[in-house]
Computed example of a mutant assay.
Amino acid sequence: MQTIAERLKITYERIDQATAQANRPSNSVQLLAVSKTKPVSDIRLAYEAGQRLFGENYIQEGVEKVQALADLHDIQWHMVGPVQSNKTKLVAEHFDWVQSVDRAKIARRLNDQRPAALPPLNICIQLNIDNEDTKAGVTPAQLPALIEEIGQYPQLKLRGLMAIPRAQVGVDEQQRSLTRLADLFAQYHTKLSDFDTLSVGMSDDLEAAIGHGSTMVRIGTAIFGERNQ
């Protein structure tokens, strides 16, 4: 059985190969290790192997891990799961990034509850690029209003877009979704100074995502194995 360090190495090799194939700089894509349902011991093993960016889907579980690993001062914690309004204070106090903002109310509460002693909270807007009824995120038509809203908040720093394109579709449809996403990102990347992150791509589709401009891939299973129930 492969170790977490070995799986991380293989994942970084996949990223390097995909960036080279896309004729992009070797350091243009970051790896976010998504550690939901995995024990703190697994995160420590990944940290010891050199990984520093970690993502959590569940707020209470994530906060417990942030607290348990407080001795690792250079870890960067990302909330990538849904944020309910009654949990925004926990997120604002413990995380460095929130990638799943899809409502003005959540953005406002995160801003108001971010401790003044901490730097502004890095924000990605979750985009429902395929307009799926069962998936969270704003539609492309709703995106400009939320970008304008977040831009008013001093304790938030808008960094880019996060998306989960439709699963199990043909190559052509996948490419159309990723192209639309890349076009929207490019539009605001040229307008906004800190808008530098396109978070798309997971264990099964990171190569396609990197080929369409992803700057951050969110990888769980390929690093930590199947999710614990």
Score class of each variant (00 low, 15 high):
25 P>F: 05
41 S>W: 04
136 A>R: 07
209 A>Y: 07
96 D>H: 02
47 Y>D: 11
35 S>L: 00
205 D>S: 05
135 K>P: 00
142 Q>W: 01
93 E>M: 14
123 I>C: 12
136 A>Q: 13
32 L>E: 00
197 T>E: 14
94 H>D: 12
87 K>Q: 13
7 R>D: 08
127 L>C: 14
187 Q>K: 15
23 N>I: 01
174 Q>C: 08
213 G>P: 11
198 L>A: 10
58 Y>R: 12
27 N>E: 15
35 S>D: 05
114 R>N: 14
131 N>A: 03
156 L>W: 04
141 A>P: 02
220 G>R: 06
48 E>R: 05
183 D>S: 14
66 V>D: 11
70 A>K: 13
218 R>H: 11
73 H>T: 14
3 T>A: 09
4 I>V: 10
143 L>R: 10
190 T>G: 01
104 A>Q: 06
22 A>R: 01
229 Q>P: 06
44 R>W: 06
145 A>F: 02
33 A>S: 10
84 Q>C: 08
96 D>C: 09
108 R>V: 07
213 G>R: 06
229 Q>L: 10
171 V>I: 10
134 T>I: 09
115 P>C: 12
64 E>F: 04
43 I>D: 06
164 I>S: 00
218 R>V: 14
203 S>E: 08
137 G>T: 01
5 A>S: 14
228 N>P: 08
219 I>M: 06
30 Q>A: 15
56 E>Q: 09
69 L>C: 11
14 R>L: 00
139 T>I: 07
201 G>M: 03
148 E>S: 14
199 S>C: 09
30 Q>P: 07
105 K>Q: 14
138 V>F: 01
153 Y>A: 07
105 K>G: 05
95 F>V: 05
87 K>L: 12
149 E>G: 02
206 L>G: 11
128 N>A: 00
139 T>N: 08
